[in-house]
Amino acid sequence: MPTEPVRRQVTVTDEGPVLVHGPIEIVLADGRKVISDRAVTALCTCRRSRRYPFCDTSHRRRVRNSVAHGSAHDRDSEECTRC
């Protein structure tokens, strides 16, 4: 008797990672395999993660304190915490 296939859910978020319901095995571009046994895994799509292929929230907007507290003309001066 035919049954409905069990489909794994993959959620695309508008600003950050792709969420995959796991556990999963990820094959990277160089053929390396990485596993994640989490119920849900967040895969990096911005390529800025230092824990690639996993999201580490590096896609977030970064500002300096002066910008966070006002001065609108500085709003573009985002800075990387990594350097």
Partner: peptide, 10 residues
């Protein structure tokens, strides 16, 4: 770092 990047979305 990894777990809470997931939890943020959840």
């Amino acid at each position: 770092i990894e777990a809470d990047a997931v939890h943020e979305q959840l």
